[in-house]
């Protein structure tokens, strides 16, 4: 991967952050990788020179997690032009609930509506069996960069 990579996580219980750190460790030998909390990310800094990997959980009735709320609000109010920005998405959810994995989809739709392009397979993890997303996320991100 020639571009630098920023892994943006949106979390409620910390699982997305934990998986983001494992993803970073799995790919950092091949690229410059930074892990950033969506809460701390300035949406005016989106750049076409960086590849973004988004990982987000789902909260309550299919909402974004509280850690992604300021990010979505900033995208809504600032509406930055994201033309040329490329990203991939890994969504966390629990299929016991009605709005499985909806949180990441809200973010994905928002970024595309602002002109960004989603690359690769949409990654998912279902926590209904009590497993953590880390292994699935690491496999997914390795496959993603193997094909880019």
């Amino acid at each position: 991967m020639s571009k630098d990579i920023v892994i943006l996580f949106g979390t409620e219980s910390g699982n997305a952050e934990f998986a983001a750190e494992d993803m970073a460790a799995a790919i950092e030998s091949d690229a410059e990788v930074t892990v950033v909390d969506m809460t701390d990310f300035d949406v005016s800094e989106f750049s076409a020179d960086v590849f973004y990997v988004l990982i987000s959980s789902t909260h309550g009735e299919g909402e974004v997690p509280s850690g992604a709320r300021p990010f979505i609000e900033a995208l809504n109010s600032n509406a930055p032009d994201l033309s040329g920005v490329e990203f991939a998405v890994f969504g966390l959810g629990d299929s016991t609930y009605e709005h499985y994995s909806r949180g990441s989809e809200i973010i994905e739709e928002k970024l595309r509506s602002l002109g960004a392009t989603r690359i690769g397979l949409y990654g998912r993890h279902d926590a209904s069996d009590g497993s953590l997303p880390n292994d699935a996320a690491v496999e997914w991100v390795k496959d993603l960069f193997a094909t880019l």
Binding site: S13, G14, N15, F18, D94, A127, D129, G130, S131, L132
Partner: peptide, 14 residues
């Protein structure tokens, strides 16, 4: 039966 909520313990296992 809320396995997803309990998964946080696996985070702490680390």
């Amino acid at each position: 039966d809320h396995h997803g909520t309990r998964a946080v313990t696996k985070q702490f296992d680390r």
